[in-house]
Design a protein around this nucleic acid. Sequence first.
DNA 1: AGGTATTTGTTCAGCGATTGAATTATTTGC
DNA 2: GCAAATAATTCAATCGCTGAACAAATACCT
Lengths: 412, 412
Amino acid sequence: MSLTHAPAGAVRQGSLRELNLALVLGRIAAAERPPSRADLATATGLTRATVSAVVEDLLAGQLVSESDPAPRSGAGRPARGLVLADQGPAGLGLEVNVDYLAVCVVDLAGQVRHRTVHRADLRPVAPADALARLVELAEAAREDAADQGLTLVGAALAVPGLVDDDGLVRLAPNLGWSDVPVPALLAEHPPLVEQVPGVPALVVDNEANLAALGELHARPPGPASFLHISGEVGIGAGIVLDGALFRGVRGWSGEIGHLPVHPEGRPCRCGGQGCLEQYAGQEAIVTAAGLARAELPADTATARLAELAEAGDAAALRALHEAGTALGVAVAGVVNLLDLDTVVLGGGYAALATWLCPPVLSEIDARVLTAAWSPVTVRPSTLGAEAAAVGAAGSVARRIIAQPAGWLARAG
Amino acid sequence: MSLTHAPAGAVRQGSLRELNLALVLGRIAAAERPPSRADLATATGLTRATVSAVVEDLLAGQLVSESDPAPRSGAGRPARGLVLADQGPAGLGLEVNVDYLAVCVVDLAGQVRHRTVHRADLRPVAPADALARLVELAEAAREDAADQGLTLVGAALAVPGLVDDDGLVRLAPNLGWSDVPVPALLAEHPPLVEQVPGVPALVVDNEANLAALGELHARPPGPASFLHISGEVGIGAGIVLDGALFRGVRGWSGEIGHLPVHPEGRPCRCGGQGCLEQYAGQEAIVTAAGLARAELPADTATARLAELAEAGDAAALRALHEAGTALGVAVAGVVNLLDLDTVVLGGGYAALATWLCPPVLSEIDARVLTAAWSPVTVRPSTLGAEAAAVGAAGSVARRIIAQPAGWLARAG
DNA sequence: AGGTATTTGTTCAGCGATTGAATTATTTGC
DNA sequence: GCAAATAATTCAATCGCTGAACAAATACCT
């Protein structure tokens, strides 16, 4: 049915230009090869005259640049290709996790132009101090970005927990945070990014959501609807529907970790019973594999597990199979409910996908009615570690692409 | 984050008017009281001049009409109120179900202007014959509508099964249909509705989806995101997110009936084990209550069950409690995943809501992490029987409101 | 009763953005 | 070297929104 979503407010004369700027820029961003103005005209349905005018604005605003003429056969004046600018606006991505801080800068084209990871156990650190360290890293990142001709126009912070609309971190259990007013704490420091109309200076969101956004914007472009599962200590899911992240009424969607897989099974800290997390969470897998559920940093534990599985260790293989089966039960339910055709295993699951995918797939085949007509793909995430930070920065860059008018108004 | 959804294609000069027509008409439809042109101007951000011009088009096209001046205190020229026209375009809703055919007509304001229900066991009837009977009823409905000054501009057909994008009914198990090409079968008959640009002549969809749409557009307006569960022989869910029905990648979302609630429990016809349908489906409840799972028509069975429960019959109460608990387990998972705050019990569940809601709520409280901060409402559907047919007709009418330009181009 | 303030709705010149056709620019192929 | 072809720009015409002035209709005040 897909009704055309009209812009929320009034459509004035100027909105016309705003919408067409976004339309053309979006096409340039989505294109496989640098398109010419003529390509854009046929693709968008606008006239070449209009496209030229729009492109002129985009060039003046450092959002796109002309590339070497794309090779073409046949007669005629050669086209000038248009690509997203490698100078101009860029997004700042921040991440606070249990055992590291991460900062990165992503440009319009989705390229990671700066990346810092600071490993440390953040659990004993007070939220304000953790954020202060992050700000230091971010300031260095901003200078690096400036040297590359990039201007930071917005920041997004990934946190492993539940976040309110206004940036209040309600609860990040594994980090030991509760009711941390991140925007207020960051307001103590000088602003990290330049203010641009239409782009929030800071967005705080769940790491699973931002990692899913990173997957959405990864090249080559994947499907527009998928389920992205981050298997860390908790299990979070980012739900991407029709190219947009679905956040739920309060922004707390994706709590797949507490889907019941054995309703009369092990009690869970959430108060329920038999939650997925008790069977496919990192601790559960590690314990089942016979590893000490010890002080190992999370990524070391999964690496160790992968090594053992690679070597054919029976306990590790059994643990992974059981976790995969539990995950499959939950995922099958989600697929039945949402009719998705792609499931991406991210976070700690990415490295274990070799062993997790088969049982997940077999549960899907057994439980999903429509699997016979429409096969479901299960694959590991293409992004590596710190996917959430990259996704966070990318979400800022995408916002400029979706609403270039704000940046242009600023840049003149 | 909610990026402004830009229209898919090019934004031309005329699109401006199209968008503003939709904007103004949408406001009139959403308003509690008939708004004046001045109200609309302040609400939309357009100037009064523009609103006047837009309203003139809407009046000429029989989409709105002027009502008696709304009473207002204070000085000033009295406003003329604007309401959705009770003559003009209307939607045709069709439904084929196991034991009845239903046809109805809904106008722009959402009023049901015609309603026919033809009770009959449709299982032994060939699809083509069932559709032929439906067409007869629809033709009578069209004449009735015409007498009331209504023009049918599109039809939507609700079917209890999986439907492809192109209207092919893949499987409707309880009806005994499989691979029924509905559009092709209906093409044999003279067209039921007038062709209007932008409005498909016929949409075929799952009954649970269309019932959810009916709930979405019911007055007074409810929340923009909710889960609507139709408990019939199978259990279907319609997922409404941000005011739009979510259909999934293939249009087969909402298969909540096969969410696992006891993964090692009773085998299900879907091939899985312990599916919700085995514990909260109509047959399961009726059997558990000790009623003959006999040839009772479905609505008689639920009515009987409600009677018994009302009278305090222990077996009935126990059956309903168990069904409600199973439903609650599944719903809690969905709420965790999608962060919804409203669950509507429709179809056969509506009449049993008194007994189903408490166990559903208690499972939600036990299993949903965020329930403490954000209470979840569980309530029966406001629409009665044949909700799917009403929702189907309403979805056509809503389409005119969302895209009035097509109708206006036709009507001159 | 009459005048004034107030609010509604319309009219009209001005303007921004798109359109479509004509024009210029640049290359390939004969 | 010339014609054909494709790319991009220029420019008058047009469409629809804006803002201000104006007309209409009522309540409130004296």
